[in-house]
């Protein structure tokens, strides 16, 4: 009897992606457990990992980590393909697009803190677009925009500072 084996040879990068994604998923799920004063306002601590990966391993790896985190967390939390998942995905996609552009900012003047704030705003914008187009299709949403923008600024700043600290170690 012959045994057939399929062997997959994971590269070093694969291991890095897997480990960091696992950490991001843990943070994402942990955050989902805590109640939020307003639905949609969350610190987004998992984005610290995305930023960390962006600086250390480049944009491609960061995109993998971010998207894998969104898909895997939604499966764990049981909201895959639900509005929560779509909001999470749209936020992640727009913030990745922003990071892709922002990575070309001169490093001398712009640190990861800038990237974090920009990504946080993009994340919020992506979510608000989905809310406006799909979930609440009228102008009433505009009342909530300032709160979301303020939250994006504060949490983007905090996450950026944490990420800068981690990177300097």
């Amino acid at each position: 009897m012959t045994r057939s084996t399929i062997s997959i040879n994971p590269t070093k990068t694969d291991h890095h992606v897997a480990k960091l994604t696992a950490l991001a998923i843990a943070l994402h799920v942990l955050e989902a457990v805590f109640p939020s004063p307003l639905p949609g306002v969350k610190p987004g601590v998992a984005n610290i990992i995305t930023l960390f990966v962006l600086i250390r391993y480049g944009f491609g790896t960061a995109a993998w980590v971010s998207l894998l985190r969104v898909f895997a967390s939604s499966l764990l939390l049981g909201n895959f393909l639900s509005p929560t998942f779509v909001l999470s995905l749209s936020g992640a996609l727009l913030s990745l697009a922003t990071l892709w552009l922002a990575q070309y900012l001169p490093k001398r003047y712009f640190s990861v803190i800038s990237l974090s704030v920009l990504a946080a705003f993009a994340h919020t914008l992506g979510q608000l677009c989905i809310v406006r187009i799909w979930l609440i299709p009228h102008a009433g949403v505009s009342y909530l925009i300032p709160i979301f923008a303020l939250a994006a600024l504060i949490f983007g700043l905090i996450n950026g500072i944490i990420c800068a600290r981690l990177l300097s170690k």
Binding site: Y109, F110, S111, I113, V117, L157, G160, A164, R165
Partner: peptide, 18 residues
């Protein structure tokens, strides 16, 4: 030392926008 001039620019601009 970690916050650079560009960071401060982005933070101030965002704060004004908010």
């Amino acid at each position: 030392s970690q916050a650079l001039i560009g960071d401060i620019f982005i933070i101030v601009t965002s704060a004004i926008a908010v």
